[in-house]
């Protein structure tokens, strides 16, 4: 089990700027430690390294079973506010007979946090080109891309621009597909003035800026309000290391990924450029699988809509009973078997 902590000292020692670093009990080193603590629970070897994608950005990558290079590698992309360690319940099962790479998305987790363009289209392009740069650096010809939530949106955006690099596209509870309903304004006008005021005020900030503003109370609050996430990972560890990891992932400054997400979303729920409008642009050669938990708050009819649009190509929607939005952790076993089956059928 080798963790390339030493190789990455250069990146770790970049100082956190501003008075905020005194107020918030976090640092890159603490994040690295929190991640290591989670990955240590795995009883399989893994290695982590920074992959240079261009002259500015580095992507933190964890590799599992990388020697088995004959098979198409599976690349995992986490969702918003998460990091690659969220896949800890899936690493073992998915890497059984193929290499698995998990990456921290640009601007999230341990990857570079340079300022991204505050424009939906340009930010999306920056994310996509970063993924492609990563693929080139890793010398991967074709890959199976699996994205959850916001990662699913980015994976789809990647598929739109580089369809020839994808062997298969798997989206787990993807964000940003449906169009903004027209009655949203009407619904909102029914609410009292003060509620709208608070909502508008909250919208002015980055989605998770509250966690950072809380400073030393942040870890406690995260533990209090997202206790359910700890429960999801109870099979692997029974302490709050995942909560610690969430905190350090999201307390880092600058939160460039979050800012980019904000620019790409409309009121935090819908995408500025919804994918449902762009499905027909996806090359028909790319096979697409979608996985939803039945309890999720996402629109469960998306799979059907996509199926109706992409009539000539492979589209399949899987529903995992009893799972919520975090489908890969809620019902990890079912999720892993679905993914393994998809991957198996390709080769």
């Amino acid at each position: 089990m080798s963790e390339a902590l030493l190789d990455t000292n250069r990146s770790l020692e970049e100082p956190d700027r501003g008075w905020g670093s005194i107020w918030r009990p976090t640092s890159k080193r603490l994040l690295a430690k929190a991640e290591k603590k989670i990955l240590q629970a795995l009883d399989i070897p893994y290695s982590g390294e920074y992959v240079k994608v261009n002259d500015r950005d580095e992507i933190w990558t964890v590799k599992i079973n990388p020697t088995n290079s004959k098979k198409t590698p599976l690349v995992l992309m986490h969702g918003f506010g998460a990091g690659l360690a969220f896949w800890v319940l899936n690493f073992k099962a998915l890497s059984h007979n193929r290499p698995v790479y998990a990456i921290d998305t640009l601007g999230f987790g341990r990857s570079s946090r340079r300022t991204l363009p505050f424009d939906a289209e340009k930010a999306e392009e920056a994310f996509v080109e970063c993924i492609d740069g990563w693929r080139k650096s890793m010398k991967i010809d074709k890959m199976i891309l699996l994205g959850h939530s916001f990662g699913g949106y980015l994976a789809f955006a990647y598929g739109l621009r580089h369809p020839d690099k994808l062997k298969h596209l798997i989206l787990a509870d993807p964000w940003g597909f449906p169009n903004e309903p027209e009655e949203r304004d009407k619904l909102q006008r029914q609410l009292p003035f003060w509620v709208r005021g608070v909502a508008m005020l909250a919208m002015a900030f980055n989605p998770l800026s509250g966690i950072r503003a809380l400073g030393p109370f942040g870890p406690f609050v995260v533990r209090k309000i997202r206790g359910d996430i700890q429960y999801k990972f109870r099979d692997l560890f029974d302490d709050d290391r995942i909560m610690n990891y969430i905190y350090h992932c999201n307390a880092q400054q600058p939160a460039s990924g979050e800012t980019a997400f904000k620019s790409m979303s409309s009121f935090g729920a819908w995408a500025q450029q919804p994918m449902l409008d762009r499905i027909h642009l996806l090359d028909p050669i790319v096979p697409l699988d979608m996985i939803y938990g039945t309890k999720t708050w996402m629109d469960l009819t998306i799979g059907e809509k996509v199926f109706n649009i992409r009539k000539d190509s492979w589209v399949k929607t899987h529903f995992i009973k009893g799972a919520g939005h975090h489908v890969y952790a809620d019902k990890a076993e079912e999720f892993n078997s679905v993914i393994n089956k998809i991957c198996h059928d390709i080769n």
Binding site: W175, A269, W297
Partner: peptide, 9 residues
């Protein structure tokens, strides 16, 4: 939920 900011829970 048909409301704003449902991403956070």
């Amino acid at each position: 939920s048909e409301e704003i900011s449902r991403y956070l829970q």
